[in-house]
Design a protein around this nucleic acid. Structure first.
Lengths: 375, 375
DNA sequence: GCACGGTATGAGAGCGCTCTCAAGCCGGAT
DNA sequence: ATCCGGCTTGAGAGCGCTCTCATACCGTGC
């Protein structure tokens, strides 16, 4: 506490001051199991006096644990910071990791070259595990993590989940299909008959699943191409998609936009073209984040607890790390539903002393319609 | 490349395969200075064959460098992820750090307890330096970084900058005062006479400086309290502030909101109260981020290149680390303007072999009015 | 009195890397 | 031939920690 600069004190120094061995100090610093109370007290006193802080590199070198996890966002476009979705999820993750004293390493993938750097990083033993978001089809990241033997949890169901590929991926997702069904049924219930859909990029499962829900609710084998447009999950994409839809199907009386951001874009186009909402065209969004509440008129939307999803991802990963550490072997992941967890079940007992590996299963959270003035 | 699991290969293994010593492999891995080409080739071959990746903990242990910097966001409220400002800045930082192969550790401070954890972390040698944002008055973080001897660059001028306290802080900011002056002069130029201001939290220098610019442009020693309201830099805060202003000064004909987000909130209130924009009330925002372009009507605002500010922060820190490494001594920071750098000058020669310590100065970037329909 | 099991502490090896220093080698100047 | 300087390479110490193993110590039960 007294020497601000100069070499940082080591275990050795603390041991000398406390009149014990390095090993004993190490024990005290790591919980003190098997050290008598008076000795512990002496050691803690010395630690305080010298302002000792363990050197993380040395610790990592021998324990093979870094106490950090990587959060990788594979979104090449500007979406990450214009869509509050990522921020919210990140916040949930950050909170949960902080509670477990685990550090968060943020990495963005924007260019081809980034994959190299990140691949090297993941195999470099810098982190204990990884959280990955918003993967598109054929993203090389999962294979990299797999090869590096790095425990990974995905945000959103990865494309190969359910396929034969082993090991089964661990992920957190909402029930996109059901959410979309609720949205479209709501529109049908209000008498709308020409319901268009603005989808996300169709190489992402969340976008595909929402489109599937739309089809199911309508009871059609495939969506009418004139009523379908890809808005790329961005506001300006939603704007353009809405324009295309109005051109190809001028008689539409409702739009289901697969994200609030796209819905807000759609609202702008509708206003520009003089279509009144919801009188002439009803609009439903998805996410229930800021853009929904601020839109004019406020959006009917499908609520998903994004922050909670982030927290669940973090908990799942921390749990996976705990289990791995206990027995060293990779853990089989049951499919969601079949003995797996639903809702927050998997994380409910995060404090259990002996984690049950069977709880390491994908988590599907609920989606729920929130009705506002746009419908 | 063949063994996916099993213990990761070490320098030793590579050395054995290449038929050289550990030291030589180390040299090749770190650039190969002083190693003959055929030997280098043999080593690289072995590295490739074994899929060798250096162990970062071991390296850090001896070099005392981690290759990571902490980004600390001291925003207790939900502002961080609703205001695109942070995201943009983070993006700039992330890009610049990635280019320098430096990792980004993200930490949020939300509760009192977080300070402890972060303090410990900063003194634990986990990172080589820190970037801090959005500090409020009396934030304990700068003192912590200082005590830990951690090179730090601030986003936005810290409160004590210019005071006697040594060492002078290194920061990146825009010319908030000038930006505000431009905004208010613009309103005056259009014949507005009762111009209100919605400020940010007045324990932040950026909020204070913008308020100062407002006063200067109006040529008054202090703002009329009926024309001033704190909007806390949030959308809903702007909404409430606008309502208060309309109550206390019903005859106002213009509002300068010190962020786009607050301006969008103000627009909502104005619309709700039936005041036409810009006919009855002109509105100017600040930032020129998404909310400005999407607002209805689109906002006249003061543009600052937020992403560039992030990049500059990162560059400044990297530079500082480079200099520290070279001579080990703390570097004096000249005041901005007095021999310091303006605009991007400080970062212009980032690739110089022998960095000039004199370039390690606060950077003030330009603010520029962008006129749109709201005025 | 002595063997015994259990617990508290210390000694010391080693985690994987970098870096200093000494040794070896070569060509050119003496 | 001899020496010198520069360049390339290897040997080995050591970064700060954890963890195994041996040792010392204690109280029991025979």
């Amino acid at each position: 506490m007294s020497e601000p600069s100069g070499p940082r004190p080591t275990l050795e120094a603390v041991a000398a001051l406390a009149g014990v061995s390095r090993a004993t100090v190490s024990r005290v610093v790591n919980g003190g199991r098997g050290v008598r109370e008076p000795v512990q007290e002496r050691v803690r006193q010395a630690v305080h006096e010298l302002g000792y802080v363990p050197n993380s590199a040395a610790r990592t070198l021998v324990t093979r644990r870094t106490g950090a996890v990587a959060v990788i966002i594979a979104e090449p476009e500007t979406r990450v910071f214009t869509d509050p979705f990522f921020g919210r999820q990140l916040r949930g993750i950050s909170r949960e990791l902080a509670a477990a004293d685990t550090q968060l390493l943020l990495m963005f993938v924007e260019h081809r070259a980034d994959y190299d750097r990140i691949g090297r990083y993941l195999s470099g033993g810098h982190v204990d595990g990884a959280l990955m978001f918003s993967l598109h089809r054929d993203d090389p990241l999962p294979a990299m993590a797999d090869r590096a033997g790095l425990p990974t949890v995905y945000g959103g169901r990865p494309g190969w989940a359910g396929a034969d590929r082993a090991p089964r991926p661990l992920y957190v997702d909402t029930d996109n299909r059901d959410g979309a069904r609720q949205a479209v049924r709501h529109l049908l219930g209000r008498g709308r008959r020409r319901i268009a859909v603005i989808t996300g990029p169709l190489d992402q499962t969340s976008a595909l699943d929402r489109l599937d829900g739309y089809r199911e609710a309508l009871g059609v084998p495939a969506a009418d191409p004139r009523l379908l447009a890809d808005g790329g999950f961005t506001a300006s994409g939603g704007e353009r998609a809405m324009a295309r839809l109005l051109d190809s199907a001028p008689d539409l009386d409702a739009v289901f936009a697969c994200s609030d951001l796209m819905a807000s874009g759609a609202l702008r186009t509708l206003r520009a073209r003089g279509r009144r909402v919801p009188d002439e065209v009803a609009v439903v969004g998805y996410d229930d984040l800021e853009p929904a509440a601020w839109a004019d008129p406020p959006l009917t939307t499908v609520r998903q607890d994004v922050e909670e999803m982030g927290r669940l991802m973090a908990r799942l990963l921390l749990r996976l790390l705990e289990v791995r550490r206990a027995d060293g072997t990779p853990v089989p992941v049951p499919a969601p539903g079949t003995g797996g967890a639903r809702g927050t079940a998997a994380a409910g007992t995060a404090g259990a002393r002996h984690p049950n590996p069977m709880q390491l299963a994908p988590v599907i959270t609920e989606a729920r319609l929130v009705v506002r003035e746009s419908t």
